[in-house]
Amino acid sequence: MSTIRFSVSSVSHAMRGQRLLASAGIRAAVRRGEVDPSTGCGYRLELIDATQSPRARRLLLEAGLLRDGGGRR
């Protein structure tokens, strides 16, 4: 199964996002990789269960933690 990762703009966004998803029952890990040019940051939220991707994406977008179009495999 491919991994779903959401690029965020800062480590604080990653922490807030992780908490937000956890409160919705979605487990996500905070990872750092190559800097995403769209965010200027290398931090990402990596979903433990990729099937929850649509719901996670919606929650992160509503919280202002994702730019529209964010999220990639």
């Binding site: 703009s9 800062s10 480590v11 604080s12 966004h13 800097v35 200027g40 940051c41 931090y43």
Partner: peptide, 17 residues
């Protein structure tokens, strides 16, 4: 330095960084 947006020469917009 804020640990993010390192190519950007202005301060990032988002708090708290």
């Amino acid at each position: 330095g804020t640990g993010s947006h390192s190519l950007q020469m202005t301060q990032p917009e988002s708090w708290p960084e």
